[in-house]
Simulated scan of single mutants.
Amino acid sequence: MKKIGLIGGMSWESTELYYRKINEAVKHHLGGHHSAKLILESVDFHGVMEMQHAGDWQGTANVLIECAQNIERAGADFLLICTNTMHKVAPEVIAAVDIPLLHLADATAERIIADGHNKVGFLGTKFSMEDDFYVGRLKDQYGLDVITPNKADRELIHRVIYDELCLGKVEENSRVEFLRIIDGLAEQGAQCIIEGCTEIVLLVNQSHTDIKLYDTTDIHADVAVNLALAD
């Protein structure tokens, strides 16, 4: 079994999901008392969040680079960044270590294409929805037609992620709003929805809608386990 490296803490609520999903999947595949071999480097999210909103992405890159190098020194065979938004600095992280990074957008896109979809709705932080590092990758490298919500709804989603979900708050009125937005994207032709922030699944999951949802946390964890257990 290969050793998985996780950069987490952004937020710890979703990192907890990664840890549980990865270990549950290893146990499912191997049975018995098996669990994953992994290394978790968890950051203090407060400082990272402040740098994000100040536009100091080089500062956030420096934090993740240090984490990645610590993980590499600890013997991990490959690396995951356990947050969609921080894939904005994935190129800097990749350049700083010799172990491979399992890119979250790639894992998600490959799953969507395998399921036969080509037009998708995307929910995430404003950074992920409005910058090109994630949606652009889905379009340019995988040929997906990606729809994002309007500006007001992007602001709402961003606020709920940072002011509620990252603080462990799950509010019913926010769920209603997210489902409204998801319905709107489907009306625009989206065949499925990417939950492109690792906390969104805390609020909305497949039990809440008939529209196909792609939980990026679940996909990333699943692909990581498959890689860890591959010969």
Rank of each mutant, 00 (worst) to 15 (best):
F127C: 04
C82N: 10
E155P: 00
I99G: 08
S42A: 04
K139E: 15
I113L: 15
D231M: 02
G9H: 08
R175P: 06
V63G: 04
V223C: 06
L185P: 12
A90Y: 04
I22G: 02
Q141E: 14
A36L: 07
L203G: 03
C197D: 12
N118T: 13
I94C: 13
N23S: 01
I193G: 00
M10G: 02
L165W: 10
A152M: 14
A61W: 11
L38Q: 14
V170F: 07
G32P: 02
T108E: 13
A109E: 09
A228W: 12
K21V: 06
V225R: 11
S35C: 11
R154H: 02
L165Y: 11
L6V: 10
S14V: 04
S11W: 09
L79H: 11
V225I: 12
G55P: 04
L38E: 05
L185E: 13
T198L: 03
D215T: 03
A25N: 10
E171H: 12
S11G: 13
A54P: 00
V170C: 09
L30N: 02
Q188D: 14
D106R: 11
R73F: 00
G143R: 11
K139Q: 15
L64T: 04
G136W: 01
K3P: 07
I94N: 10
A68D: 08
R111W: 01
D145P: 01
A114W: 06
D140N: 14
T15N: 05
R154F: 01
K3D: 04
A186M: 05
Q52A: 08
Y134C: 07
E50Q: 14
V176Y: 09
L80N: 13
G59P: 10
V26W: 06
G143A: 05
L123A: 07
R175K: 14
A36I: 05
H117C: 12
L17D: 14
H29D: 04
Y134K: 05
N84S: 05
R20L: 07
